[in-house]
């Protein structure tokens, strides 16, 4: 278990703004709500969710780029949130992100060479010559010619920028790569290329990959295990191979296109509660065609129904 997430929650408080049309009270956005899972070394762990499901906040919290409200993240058994700055730096060496939108993750003022050298400089890896070697080697792996070193991000295409971002993280030889929407905004051909690259690099470097996306196909194809997130919670966790057949949670089935979703009746007052997870009860209750009375009052726990298959639902997997 290289990385474990235990009852992690990240909540934001939004203060009431009488000038806005909604939101008459202070309300809490439960971006990440009591999430638990464990990732084993070498696996590809996929997380699927629509926008607003909290997946990006989850990634950022796991990387300690933002505060957690409750729970913990453990790296090889050690609490990430209890780390001091030097331990944290070590952690960052081992666990690296790849974010979507390399537009904003690359400093527009730096040229590619400086961008790639930065992680090595931060961690004091090698001397100038060795660094040049590493960078050169990495460029080969991501299929970019050395002429790119002098260019600035604005001179690169979206796919090229994403590859540079990937390379930058990989130069640290991390153990875990957390990729949040690494291919969104890229056209299909480039998406395939970037994905193939990531998987190949994973093979070559023995990486653990946490792949976060809204694109079901991509995640299902690449992952060993998949977790489905809805409004800050994991609703289903299953193996990757027969994911589609085994999918049982109403929301997962909706994503797969085999089940419908009850359209929500918007309620003006407290509409934000609807978007960000009700206080009690299942977050999906209002959209679920199977919903029971209990679904509105008690939040379902993530329970194992069969080998390696966990689901959080009162209707499908009752006690």
């Amino acid at each position: 278990m290289i990385l474990e997430v235990r009852h992690l929650s990240t909540h934001y408080l939004v203060r009431h703004n009488p000038l806005a049309r909604f939101g008459h009270r202070d309300h809490l956005i439960r971006a990440v709500d009591d999430v638990s899972f464990a990732v084993t070394a070498g696996e590809v762990f996929g997380i699927i969710g629509e926008s607003g499901s909290g997946k990006t906040t989850l990634a950022r919290t796991m990387l300690r780029l933002c505060d957690s409200t409750a729970g913990d993240v453990l790296h090889r058994g050690r609490s990430v949130f209890a780390m001091n700055s030097s331990e944290l730096k070590q952690y960052r060496h081992s666990v690296q992100p790849v974010f979507q939108d390399a537009d904003s993750t690359l400093d527009p003022r730096q040229h590619v060479g400086a961008i790639l050298e930065e992680p090595l400089l931060i961690h004091g890896i090698g001397d100038a010559a060795t660094r040049r070697q590493y960078i050169g080697g990495m460029l080969e792996q991501i299929n970019l010619s050395p002429s790119f070193l002098q260019r600035h991000p604005s001179e690169l295409s979206g796919g090229q920028r994403q590859r540079v971002a990937l390379a930058r993280s990989l130069l640290l030889n991390p153990e875990v790569l957390i990729a949040d929407e690494p291919t969104s905004g890229l056209d299909p051909l480039v998406t395939t290329q970037v994905l193939a690259l990531m998987l190949r690099l994973k093979q070559d470097h023995g990486l653990t990959l946490i792949l976060i996306s809204h694109d079901l196909e991509t995640v299902a194809y690449a992952s060993d295990r998949i977790a489905v997130m809805y409004r800050g919670r994991i609703v289903e966790l299953s193996g990757g191979e027969d994911f589609a057949q085994r999918a049982s949670h109403p929301y997962t089935r909706f994503l797969l296109g085999v089940e419908r979703r009850v359209p929500e009746i918007p309620v003006l007052e407290g509409v934000h509660e609807h978007i960000h997870g009700a206080e009690d009860g299942c977050a999906y209750a209002n959209s679920c065609p199977h919903h029971l009375h209990v679904c509105h009052s008690i939040s379902p726990e993530l329970r194992e129904t069969s080998q390696g298959h966990l689901i959080a639902c009162h209707a499908i997997a009752p006690e």
């Binding site: 990387l63 700055s85 960052r92 974010f99 690359l106 930065e118 931060i122």
Partner: peptide
């Protein structure tokens, strides 16, 4: 608050580094 500063932070950069470099 920009993306690239956050990325540098994720790479392990400390405050001093971020200040000077970005």
């Amino acid at each position: 608050q920009s993306g690239y500063v956050e990325s540098a932070r994720a790479l392990g950069a400390g405050d001093g580094w971020l200040m000077r470099r970005h």
